[in-house]
Design a binder for these strands. Structure first.
Lengths: 230, 230
DNA sequence: TGTTCTATGTAACTACACTTACATTTTTCG
DNA sequence: CGAAAAATGTAAGTGTAGTTACATAGAACA
């Protein structure tokens, strides 16, 4: 897949000295979130930055009538809510929800701003992170306009496999439990059509299910379905 | 409209000293682009940053089969191509095209990086710019998923009026000459449906045309059509 | 000024995916 | 364990917007 999707994470804090890590630790506090609990909602004050230590977190946008589009699913080690330090806007425009039991390090916007002050390397990392995420959203936008649901779903599965996958023999397990509803929100479609597409792929022996998880049986076949060439 | 769209531009260089401006000027060279000429294409080396002095520039993504989705239309004073300094990727993923005769200041990636080094304020501005643009793309994405073409077009016209508009009496002139094809690409639709929608709005006396330009007759009516409430 | 190219208007047809509506299965939790 | 809730399967019907196909109007340029 493209580099953008292949990189599992951008670790903002890599290459920091022990002293700096200690300093970071001091301004941080850890908090546990149950599975399915909300970390923030649209309209909430944008005054904290989060570092995901354990578990997975889903970032989505909501429509007035309760529909949802998911922008990204975050892995441990990733930072989020970073728009707090970048946007002038005071409130969140998306929802963050724990997909699994999760532990987060929470840093107040103010402390974080002070912390990155005079750490130009870190500031650059943040800038790169912003750029990286922008690029991902741009790709979602392109896909939405240029591709149909089968194509989008095939692409999604390939990307999820890169980001959250494990090789198991010659197969590849997407190691997150997602409902069809979740898949639908990741490709901007509905639960029903997504169910149908998933079953199409199953019938074509491109994927199979293990519990609530997808196993990719034929990466090549999926790529063909996604009209994606290496 | 929301703050995000209301801000006409983010001027990266505001508040810079004369000395810094001089310094910036030294690493810059000016170039003219004819209307309809391309500034860069997907695949081009991402080794320059551009400052738009005069004219307007359109940034779009292309599909394999030649379709196009426009991300933004830039006004004089705005910077673009900034992913050069932020992305690790070496090549452009979008097209930049001059919509009008344009003058650009061109800065090499290397010079620009050196220039912002030790100007933490400027680095922050760039980060904010990235965040700002990301937010805009996110809004486009939301609209694409949650709204139909009439709604998207109405929203587009309102936003264009904010960004590129002039009050003329109680009317508002969107002071750019765009073809229906351009409007279509801005809302992720086709030329034909966009023509039809524009004519619907005309028939409803929400807009009128002056040459190739749109005049908004009833902002309220358009907002209603966009299901947008102040 | 005439010719060519680009842009716009319109309409019939089509299709993809959304809606609606349940049945069935699986999971959760008291 | 059993009841309730959540998730999945499926199919018929519908609708919005895309496609195709021209006709006309307007701009550009020689």
């Amino acid at each position: 897949m493209e580099k953008t999707w292949y990189l599992k994470r951008i670790n903002i804090f890599q290459g920091m000295s022990d002293k700096e890590m200690k300093q970071l630790n001091d301004i941080t506090h850890m908090k546990h979130y149950d599975k399915k609990s909300l970390i923030y909602l649209p309209g909430d004050a944008s005054d904290q930055v989060y570092l995901l230590k354990e578990g997975r977190v889903k970032i989505s946008k909501l429509s007035e009538d309760g529909r949802e589009i998911t922008l990204v699913i975050l892995e441990p080690g990733e930072i989020f809510g970073e728009s707090a330090i970048v946007d002038d806007d005071e409130t969140r425009s998306s929802v963050a929800e724990a997909l699994e039991n999760a532990y987060l390090c929470i840093i107040s916007r103010k402390d974080f701003e002070e912390f990155i002050n005079n750490k130009p390397g870190l500031a650059l990392s943040i800038t790169k992170l912003m750029g990286f995420r922008r690029r991902q959203i741009e790709t979602m936008l392109e896909d939405l306009v240029f591709r149909g649901v089968h194509e989008r779903l095939a692409l999604l599965l390939l990307r999820l496999a890169d980001r959250h996958g494990k090789a198991v023999g010659d197969k590849k397990l997407i190691d997150i439990s997602l409902t069809h509803y979740d898949y639908a929100n990741l490709i901007g479609s509905t639960r029903e059509t997504t169910t149908a597409c998933l079953n199409d792929f199953k019938r074509e022996d491109l994927i199979e299910f293990q519990k609530r998880k997808v196993v990719i049986l034929s990466e090549r076949g999926l790529k063909k379905r996604a009209k994606y060439e290496d």
